[in-house]
Design a protein around this nucleic acid. Structure first.
Lengths: 248, 248
DNA sequence: CGCGACTTTGACAGATGTCAAGGCTTGTGG
DNA sequence: CCACAAGCCTTGACATCTGTCAAAGTCGCG
């Protein structure tokens, strides 16, 4: 799938979902391309505690931010779609205890911190947009915590499907009642703090109920209303305009 | 307890834990006082979806950020100590689906968004410091998620004690092996996604093991080493210099 | 002194994890 | 085009952690 001539357009799109940027500012972001380098990545491509010099813009594919316990148990703390900068925080906090891992064939654009610093210094509105962007990620995290702490496993699986559907829709990557979510059941388990086996059981139950199903990477939503009901899903935390979220 | 003449000094202290600020910038933050108003708050003092015009700096006491499910189950997604601005994000995202609640007698300073905007526009370094501050909060959230998803209930209780000990120590509010944590067992449960009853059992077991105990608001740590072991606690995510974290 | 909120304890239930085994898909190389 | 291997999915039996319900004890504030 050919991506747009300037991968940074994806990033501009994400920012302008929530922030107003003038034409001059958008241009400035696009010129980052000259100082960036595209790369195809597999598996873990940024490891713990490593001092960062670039931020990683996801161009295509899917990236997960992992934390882990001493025992080596892994937990996904964020999922990043095309257009997200998976470690924008690294600009202000260059050592972070998380790793970044590609979950499918993934292309990223490495944008040097220097360049981002210059940009923010010259355009304060961009600095605010970056900050706001981080707040959205932080909201997602908080919402996940509520789910973990206070909802059942089915609700969590359903909620992840809802969230991902809305996020993919915001970047125009959904079909009528379908979208592609290239996560294995094991990876879903790592995101939800469950076991792969239990995720399997919950997916099976959603399918048996005729609510939604996952076939390979393809998620099909049969009944959005019941799905959001099970998930207790309220999209406001994503801060995306929800013009007619109804699926069909 | 009389607090310092200028409550904003607490905020400057928090920021300078992680960001370098020049004297001029520190001064500028302190002058926010002229445009702010102090208030004593009880219970829920900022509610969901309410459009914010000020940010709330905690001067004394303890503030929790709550999320809730449709069913009304509550979940604490952040705890804010004196010196924290409990909703600094509201500056860039004025409607958020969380509420703020005072957990003890608490004094806050209401700082108008306008004033903060002016400040950031005039001092880009302060904007970066705010952003960085948000990243730390977000790290705490991510760490909590790892705990929820992948650790046992005892580990979670122990981890909360460790984290709060370090955070209180960073603002100089700890004694040798003791500090004050004015949370009820029910509130701890809301923070950890457990039940009050189970929190009680876990605290009892930590006490029986001679690791740590909670008596009223006072937490006493008998064995920091074993406590961090149980919690699998690694303070790096808090981004506080850990000069000799050993307790005694 | 007395009430209300918080803590403590016990018995029991249910959700989720663990272990084990077998089937399916997909990609690779002959 | 086929066969194989590796990873992924599916299923079942069982264990365990945490939640639920109920009741009594304790603490602190008015």
């Amino acid at each position: 799938m050919p991506h747009p001539p300037n991968a940074l357009q994806l990033f501009v799109n994400r920012l302008t979902l929530r922030s107003e940027l003038g034409g001059e500012e958008r241009e400035a972001i696009l010129t980052l391309l000259d100082r960036s380098r595209e790369a195809e990545v597999r598996h873990e491509f940024v490891s713990t505690e490593e001092q960062r010099r670039h931020a990683c813009l996801v161009v295509s594919g899917l990236v997960a931010r992992f934390g882990q316990t001493r025992g080596g148990l892994r937990q996904i703390v964020a999922l990043h779609l095309p257009g997200d900068v998976a470690d924008l925080q690294s600009v202000v906090a260059p050592t972070l205890p998380w790793t970044l891992q590609a979950l499918t064939r993934t292309t990223i654009l490495k944008v040097p911190h220097d360049a981002l610093f210059d940009l923010v210094a010259r355009h304060p509105a961009i600095g605010l947009a970056f900050w706001r962007d981080g707040v959205v990620d932080s909201n997602i995290l908080a919402q996940w915590m509520i789910n973990y702490g206070r909802k059942s496993a089915v609700a969590n699986v359903a909620h992840l499907i809802c969230e991902m559907y809305i996020r993919y829709r915001a970047i125009g990557r959904t079909h009528v009642r379908q979208f592609s979510l290239p996560l294995t059941q094991g990876q879903i388990a790592d995101a939800l703090g469950l076991t792969a086996i239990h995720v399997n059981r919950m997916l099976a139950s959603l399918k048996a109920e005729g609510v939604a199903a996952k076939n390979g990477a393809i998620i099909t939503i049969y009944d959005w209303h019941r799905l959001t009901g099970i998930a207790e899903f309220d999209p406001s935390y994503l801060q995306v305009e929800d013009e007619s979220i109804e699926v069909s």
